[in-house]
Nucleic acid binder design. Structure first.
Lengths: 210, 210
DNA sequence: ACCGGACTTTACCATATGGTTAATCCATCC
DNA sequence: GGATGGATTAACCATATGGTAAAGTCCGGT
């Protein structure tokens, strides 16, 4: 593989990413991807045998952007407060730049649940059995500890994680509606997210106060 | 229109609902809808001129199930605590029965943002300008009041609503992934939601404690 | 200069898909 | 019982779409 190959394959993957995120997998057209990449449609099939495989590649890449960083944060040895703040900061920063990502990934999860296991194992490099338990083991310990101390309200680790992800990801998935319902003009959503970045960690941590 | 018409049109709409939610709008096939309804494909076009119009009808119906009840709760004169509890109870109960609904609506919002205004106005029966402000006016008053009392942590009404919706809706949109990551067996998700119904109001209200 | 192989394009194919048409069915009315 | 008209179907149509074959094109090695 020469440099040019890498470039082209990468350009195609980028184009596919753009189009799949914009239209969804079923709504994406190979021709539109080719146009977006500035190449011929047949070239897509040269690098990725079929739309199906291309969809898989794009999904993995999208999932890799969405989840691993946060799992790393949650599995780290940081204190709970730091984990919450870092997670919020990471999501609100990165998602502000790729607005379609959450909606795309959620839609794919519903339409191709069979991909989930494969993708997660590829991301984690390990079988998926009890993946959550292992990743969140440290978090669970911390929660238990702090509950014993009386410095944390009891909460199941699962609910902790889902609450945190919900508050970070959902606003982006619902963005088009929020813009209308909340009457946000241009930059209105950005301002909303900035405000959120400022207040969400406090909100979340306050909820965990005993 | 005879009874039979109503029945058939309704059956087709139900079938369309099922298929659109299962596959997404772009992935849905008219033939599959016809099969699901047990009628000929041409009959779909007899009642709904085109796939586009059928999609619109299904989306409106889905949006009508998802939003108005909660807007009514939030706009009511109930105390804040009651609003939170009623919202959580309503969402976790109704969404447990229609698992694809949130994902479908969120995906449609992204792919057809032009529909949002039209749909919201049709649901509200009023122009969309400042819709949020009007609906949440009572809520905003209550928050302000309680903050003055010192019985509530300051929070912007927009953030209040988005936080609440996030916590209620997101878990269903992310359900397929949560089932894998959290290692939920059959009924595992239901149990997760039951636990959530029990603890989420406390979590949310605790976050608002001053 | 020419060879081989990777890369890229042109032209094409088979099928899926949304949509239409014309005929048929069937309840209702006279 | 036949006419009427909406409901329903079978058979089609035009096009979009994913995919393929074959013919270049480019480039490094000899």
């Amino acid at each position: 593989m020469t440099d040019r190959d890498q470039d082209t394959e990468q350009r195609i993957l980028d184009a596919a990413h753009t189009v799949f995120l914009r239209r969804g997998t079923a709504g994406a057209r190979m021709q539109e991807i080719a146009d977006e990449a500035g190449v011929n449609k047949a070239l897509l099939h040269y690098y990725f045998r079929s739309k199906e495989r291309m969809a898989e590649a794009v999904f993995q890449r999208a999932a890799r952007r969405l989840f691993p960083p946060v799992l790393a944060i949650l599995a780290s040895d940081d204190a709970i407060e730091a984990k919450v703040e870092r997670t919020v900061a990471h999501y609100l920063d990165t998602l502000a730049e790729t607005p379609f990502l959450p909606g795309y990934v959620l839609a794919e999860l519903q339409h191709h649940p069979e991909r989930i296991t494969r993708t997660l194992e590829s991301l984690a490099g390990a079988p998926v059995q009890g993946l959550g338990l292992r990743v969140f083991a440290r978090l669970a310990e911390q929660i238990e500890e702090r509950v014993r101390d009386g410095t944390l309200r009891p909460i199941l680790p699962d609910q902790f994680v889902v609450n945190l992800l919900s508050l970070c990801i959902f606003p982006f998935a619902a963005r088009p509606m929020l813009e209308v319902v909340l009457g946000l003009g241009p930059d209105g959503f950005d301002a909303f997210i900035r405000e959120r970045k400022r207040t969400l960690p406090g909100f979340f941590l306050n909820a965990l106060r005993p």
